[in-house]
């Protein structure tokens, strides 16, 4: 137990950053070029026409034209019903419909699917994933994540953490958020993978990953994608592959508790599968994939059933088209 405490303390000190540690973008660009790195930004979207322009214009102007830190901005969309892709293209992003990438594969829909297909579609040695619904978007969301990897070749996966005010009715709170993290993810990590509990916000949607790590891990296409990343990379590379960066505030849409319940249900499926594979626990029954939530209607309770299966894509490196595109024998 003492070892775990010590390991976590050591890791936190060594591998936890603040975005201001990487304020010198000119120096970072020089270092990136010295290592011959290419960096891609992937923004997964679904109906984000009101938010996407701001992210694209800001990142393109600041991090491609002014400081050439990233080499491409790609919006990968799950099939928006609004003008997300048109708006993104108008402001200069490369735009893709997830179903058009590797189209011969059976169609799946979910954020994880977009993230997985980005590995095939994008060219970077490092891929940065940033959600589209961040209203206080700033270049720090990118350079804060890339920084540790540019300066430390041994770091392969950098996760964001925040003070997370929730924006729902225009009111900004000084702290809060991360409810699924604190109620589910950190407790189960603490039970079975205690070192991973040191990742301050394991479910944050912003992270940067080296390609050689990314193409080696399977991808749940739903809620479990971040959880599975952490467990799989931890098992393969240990804590030294991880770093985390404080990006200050992230203002985003709040989610109702029932939506968080569905998220937790998906994460648990992913977790139980991983923990079973790693012989951390034995699940002796077939999992039920229906989540039942309840609502009151006309004075009585009604069941609302959600069928949630955390389907997974295999490691991208196992896909022949990928191996061919990237010249892997």
């Amino acid at each position: 137990m003492e070892d775990i405490v010590k390991n976590i303390e050591t890791w936190l000190k060594k591998n936890t950053y603040h975005h201001s540690d990487f304020w010198d973008l000119r120096k970072m660009v020089e270092e990136k070029e010295r290592h011959g790195l290419t960096i891609s930004l992937c923004i997964p979207t679904l109906n984000e026409e009101n938010n996407i322009a701001k992210e694209v214009v800001l990142f393109r102007s600041e991090l491609i034209d002014r400081y050439p830190l990233i080499d491409e901005i790609a919006v990968i969309d799950s099939g928006s019903e609004d003008r997300t892709l048109e708006v993104a293209a108008e402001f200069g992003a490369d735009t893709y419909l997830a179903s058009d990438i590797l189209p011969h594969l059976e169609s799946k829909r979910g954020k994880g699917e977009n993230l997985w297909k980005a590995i095939y579609q994008l060219k970077g040695d490092i891929i940065v994933y940033v959600d589209a619904d961040i209203t206080n978007i700033h270049p720090r969301f990118i350079y804060g994540l890339i920084g540790p990897m540019i300066y430390r070749p041994e770091v392969g996966y950098v996760k964001a953490f925040y003070d997370r005010p929730l924006s729902d009715t225009g009111i900004v709170r000084p702290s809060g958020g991360g409810r699924v993290t604190e109620i589910l993810t950190r407790p189960i990590f603490s039970l079975f993978y205690p070192e991973l509990a040191a990742v301050i916000q394991p479910l944050s949607g912003e992270y940067a990953v080296r390609r050689h790590i990314l193409h080696d891990i399977p991808f749940p296409i739903g809620y479990g994608v971040e959880t599975s990343h952490l467990i799989d990379i931890y098992k393969k590379y240990g804590m030294e592959a991880f770093a985390q960066t404080d990006l200050d505030k992230r203002v985003h849409r709040n989610q109702p508790t029932q939506a968080l319940g569905r998220m937790a249900f998906g994460i648990l499926q992913t977790f139980l599968r991983r923990a079973g594979d790693h012989e951390k626990l034995l699940v002796q029954t077939e999992l039920n994939h229906y989540l039942r939530q309840f609502q009151v209607s006309k004075g009585s309770f009604e069941q609302v059933e959600h069928f949630i299966v955390e389907d997974e894509r295999p490691p991208m490196i196992t896909i022949p088209e990928y191996r061919e595109k990237f010249g892997l024998s």
Binding site: K54, V57, L58, R60, S61, E62, D65, R66, F91, G92, N136, I137, H138
Partner: peptide, 13 residues
């Protein structure tokens, strides 16, 4: 114009 828009976001926020 994107340079102006980016500065507008950074300064204006």
């Amino acid at each position: 114009q994107q340079f102006v828009l980016a500065n507008l976001i950074l300064l204006g926020e």
